[in-house]
Nucleic acid binder design. Structure first.
Lengths: 132, 132
DNA sequence: CTAAATGCAAAGCATTTGCAAATAT
DNA sequence: ATATTTGCAAATGCTTTGCATTTAG
């Protein structure tokens, strides 16, 4: 879905500021607030920090983006298909990875005798490039 | 290992303030800074907030305790055997759970062609009690 | 045209720091 | 005896908020 539609569907106006933040996340995959501020201000020097804060919070609430508690500081990403995160400690990159977690989740549900609603699965890794 | 030994092994003096924080974590399992402040000050009214901050940071650095990025605010726990976290959204309790994750980790390593160094596995759940 | 969003400045919290006094070893 | 730790107060830094102005729809 286009970013414009994404915003409108959530009753948010498609302002240039919001589109700039979403473009940044689209390009980066994941970014911290500081990274978002730096990158967006290159293209949009008048964009204020409080607007970034407000928009990130609003878009998290509206479920357009999500906050990923990984690495040193929280990172933001546009919501997409379910995936796990691989964080390479060597090159400091966060990789999205899709894998079937159903068997593992079932195993935990059975062992712990609980109902799993949601999962957060992060691995600290050395990525393919860094292993060479 | 006793808390006193734990601290001394890490070149930290076994002050009553540190022991009080460790006792609190031992009793609670997991606690936020606010919870630690509240509980420790009951037993130790003169304990200052900056001491709590300093000690939590130092003990995380020395690997005596760890910060768990789960629920609304980070929680602290005394380091122990590897485990995953189950967070019951209904009763707001964090449960430690031990399960064999090797097969799952191997699967990811193979699929993603990477070396996994560490993992963070949290599930949001409804626990046995809350399911009744 | 109007409600929503923005930018700026100020306010509000959370966390850290400097330092003199106290304390563990 | 001494280096470490503590408590306090001040400083810092991050995040939110109030409000006049602008803007998307």
């Amino acid at each position: 879905m286009s970013h414009i539609k994404l915003l409108k569907t959530s009753d948010l106006k498609a302002t240039p500021q919001r589109l700039c933040v979403l473009d940044t996340l689209e390009n980066c995959g994941h970014a911290t607030l500081e990274q978002i501020e730096k990158i967006t201000k290159e293209k949009f020097p008048t964009l204020s920090l409080s607007t970034i804060y407000r928009n990130l919070n609003e878009m998290v609430e509206k479920d357009i983006i999500s906050e990923v508690k990984i690495a040193k500081k929280p990172h933001y990403e546009i919501k997409k298909e379910k995936h796990i995160h691989l964080y390479c400690k060597s090159c400091d990159t966060i990789w999205d990875f899709q894998s079937d977690t159903n068997a593992f989740i079932d195993k935990i549900e059975n062992e712990a005798n609980c109902k799993i609603l949601n999962d957060v699965i992060h691995f600290e890794i050395l990525c393919t490039n860094c292993l060479k």
